[in-house]
Simulated scan of single mutants.
Amino acid sequence: MIYLGRSRLQRLRANLVQSLHTASAMSRCGVDVRMYLPQWPRRLDPARRLSELGVNEALNVVGSFWIHPRFGVGTFLRIHRRAVGRADLRYTRVVPWSIEMARRGLVNHVEVHNVQQIGDEGQMEPLVAHHRAGAIGMLIPISRSAARILVEAGADADRVHVAPSGVDVGAYDGIARFDADRLDHPRVVHIGQLSDERGRHVFERVIRQGVGEVTLIGAGTRDAADGLRDAVRMPPVPAKAVPGWYGRSDLVLIPYQPSIRTVATMSPMKLFEAMASGRPIIASDLATVREIVEHERNALLVDAEDSQAWIAAIERLRDDRDLARTIAEQARRDAEAYDWSRRAEGILDAIARQQGLAPVSATGCPRP
């Protein structure tokens, strides 16, 4: 398999982590994966960087100077035409690259993430046309909502496979177990950027009402006029350190707002990390979130924009420890279905069915 990606190895982005773990899991499924990414700086040790990102097994990652916005993918395909042409499988999560490969007669399979952007940039029509013609085999959206949009645009429903984001479940096996006794004044850890569309007001309300201690990791610097000035702030951490920080959290808030650009089709990796941590989850009641978690079964779902509703949910878990334990334990069990190995297995099985081959699930894909 040739896997084409445009995420930069030196940066810490969710799309990079997802791409690397998916490719690594495909390799464990028995697929010979060669992953091309933009060339990284000479000072960067790729093996060490993969370890920092939680990829602990060998993965054939090749840096290419020709994967760069100034060139587009056409130059790369011309220079590497033999390697790309001889590959049994070609895979990408970059829709314009998928379309260009299809235009050149290179059958490929593509993950579909930001459907809104695809439509805005005029890519939906050629994507679906090449898909219906067979030049793009499987469309792999990350949510059922995204799949519906693709089918409504004319995609062949039989060649659309939904593959939500994932998590390395095993990486969370060693973290501290959830302790409901700490819910009197819970520690709430948020990892990553924090903005209005990611629910900044919710964390401000938690601090203002004193219902918990907020720790922000990689969320920027303190501002004296900031409603988050009393939060504990930490610098960004490598991906392999993320499970440990969830282990220091007593509950997880995932307050994505309806205004976030990808709200209609997203599959946030943060949600699966929270599930794997075995912590009680309070999340926004959004359609794409409801695809993964269910109110009062493995999470509490609340009105994203009502900050007081988030406080009420925290207080509910504080007052009902049995509910907190129930949803935390169920979320941890449900996370098993979203391990990276299961994600890769599902994608490869879908491709195999489309090509009339035996499914990889017959032998299974081991975890790292």
Rank of each mutant, 00 (worst) to 15 (best):
Q193C: 06
W245Y: 14
K240M: 11
L194E: 10
G247M: 11
P235V: 05
L253G: 05
L253H: 03
D173L: 06
K240L: 09
A231I: 13
V188D: 01
A180M: 13
G212T: 08
M234A: 13
Q193E: 15
V211I: 04
L228F: 05
Y246R: 07
P235H: 04
S249D: 02
A239I: 08
V232C: 05
R229D: 13
P238E: 12
R248I: 00
L228H: 06
T221K: 15
D226Q: 08
H201M: 11
D230K: 03
L183M: 09
D179W: 00
M234D: 13
D230V: 00
A241K: 07
V189Q: 00
D250C: 00
D173R: 10
D168K: 12
R187H: 15
G218P: 03
V167A: 00
V242F: 09
W245V: 13
L183H: 03
D181T: 11
D226I: 05
D168C: 07
V242N: 05
P186F: 06
R187T: 15
G220L: 13
D196C: 02
A219N: 10
R177P: 13
D226S: 14
G220F: 09
D173P: 04
I217F: 03
A171M: 07
H190S: 11
Q257D: 14
S249L: 07
A219C: 11
I254L: 15
I175M: 03
I191F: 10
V232N: 06
G227E: 08
V242P: 10
H190A: 06
P258K: 14
D226A: 13
V169W: 12
V202G: 12
M234K: 15
G244V: 09
G210R: 09
G212E: 03
D181K: 15
